[in-house]
Nucleic acid binder design. Structure first.
Lengths: 193, 193
DNA sequence: GGCTGTTGCGTCAGTCACTGACATATAGAC
DNA sequence: GTCTATATGTCAGTGACTGACGCAACAGCC
C-alpha cells in the first residue's frame, strides 16, 4: 500500500536497527525486520543486497564527500595534509548523525559479522581517498599508502571522539595526525610517548 | 575410512582451492568440496567454521610468528623499526608458501567475499602486532596506530613482491618503509615522488 | 584378549539468508 | 481514459550452516 519506495527503505533500516539492538544481530531474521517495517522479506532484499547492508546505508554519500574534500584541499598540501583537510570537512556530517551512529557503533562492536562488513566499507573509503589523491598528482603507490595511513589515523580519531566527544572531533583529528608524524620521525624507542 | 583427521582437513583445503580455481568461489558448493575430499558436507563444517575459512588456514601460525618477531626486535628499535624487523623475520615463511599462495591470491582478488574475509584476517594480525608492541612498552594508542601503519606498508610490499619477485621481499619491504618515512616527514606537495 | 572413553565421521532434519519468475497494483505520462 | 514504469507480493527453490543421534575406529588400561 505504501507508494513511496524510499519510505519503505527507511522503515526497513529503522526496524533493522531496533531489532538488532533488542535481540542481537544473529537472533533476528530478515523476515522479522520486514514484518516490523510492514513489508515482505522479498522487499527487504530488493532494497539491500544482504542483511548486513541495512546498517551501512549512505556510505556512498560519505565516500563522495571525502573525495570532494581531498580535491578541495589547498594545492600546497602534501598527501597527508590533504587527507586531514578532507576529514575536517566531513566532520559536520558525523556530528549530525551521532544519534543514529551511537547505537549502530555499539552493535557493530558486538557483532563480528558487522565488523567484517565495516572493514570492507572502510576499504572502499580508502580506495576513494587514494583515487582522489592520484587526481592531485600523487603517484599511485604513494597515494594508496597515504590513504591507508590517513584512514587509520581518522578511524583512531573517530573512535576517540565517540568515547569522549568533549574536545570535539577536530581536536581528536589533530592529535591523531600529530601522533602520525611522531611515529615515523626518527624516534628513539625510549621515547614511547 | 581415514583415521587421521588432520588428513581429511588437508584434503578439504586442497579440494576447495582446486574447485574454486576451476569454477570460481560462488559456483562451487561445500557439498562438492566435501565429495572431492572424500567426506560429507557435515565434516567440512567440522573442520572449518564456514566456506571461506577453508582458504585461510594457518593464519594463527603466521600471527604467532609476527608477534614473536616484534618481541625479538632489538630493544633500541622504535615501533616502526620493530615491525620492520618482524616482517623481515617472517619473510621466509612467505617465500616457502609462494606456490600455494599464488593461486590463492588470484582467487581472493577475484572474489569480494574472500577479500572481506582477508581483511578480517589482516585485522587480526594488526591486533597481534599492536599487542606485541605494547609488550615492548609502547603506549596503547601509539601501538595501535603503528601496527596499522606498519601493516599497510607490509601489505603494500607483499603485493609488490607478488607482482615482481625479482628484487626479493626484503627489498620491497625496505622500499615501502622508506616511502612511509617520506610520507609524513615535512614534505612539500610538489615533492610527489 | 576384553572394556571403555574419546574422537572423527555419517546421517537426518531443520533454519535461514538469498534468488528467480511471475503476478499485481499504484503513480504518473499522455 | 489508456499505458507504462516502478514498487511490491507470492511462490518455489538453492545453498550455507547447525543440532542431535548413532556408529566405528582407535586409545589406554586391566
Amino acid at each position: 500500500m505504501p507508494r513511496s519506495g524510499e519510505d519503505a527503505r527507511r522503515r526497513l533500516q529503522q526496524a533493522a536497527l531496533e531489532l538488532f539492538a533488542e535481540r542481537g544481530y544473529e537472533a533476528t531474521t530478515t523476515a522479522e525486520i520486514a514484518t516490523r517495517a510492514g513489508v515482505t522479506e522479498r522487499t527487504f532484499f530488493r532494497h539491500f543486497p544482504d542483511k548486513r547492508e541495512a546498517l551501512f546505508d549512505g556510505e556512498e554519500a560519505f565516500r563522495a564527500a571525502l573525495s570532494d574534500g581531498v580535491l578541495a584541499a589547498p594545492e600546497d598540501q602534501n598527501p597527508i595534509g590533504a587527507l586531514l583537510f578532507a576529514f575536517r570537512a566531513v566532520g559536520p556530517m558525523l556530528e549530525e548523525n551521532r544519534a543514529f551512529s551511537g547505537p549502530r557503533a555499539v552493535l557493530i562492536a558486538q557483532t563480528p559479522a558487522l565488523q567484517e562488513r565495516m572493514r570492507t566499507k572502510t576499504a572502499g573509503l580508502i580506495d576513494a581517498l587514494s583515487a582522489a589523491l592520484r587526481r592531485r598528482g600523487i603517484e599511485e603507490g604513494a597515494a594508496a599508502l597515504a590513504a591507508q595511513v590517513g584512514m587509520a589515523a581518522f578511524t583512531h580519531a573517530a573512535g576517540a571522539w565517540f568515547a569522549d566527544p568533549k574536545p570535539g572531533l577536530d581536536a581528536h583529528l589533530t592529535r591523531a595526525f600529530d601522533a602520525l608524524h611522531d611515529l615515523s620521525s626518527t624516534g628513539r624507542a625510549s621515547r614511547s610517548r
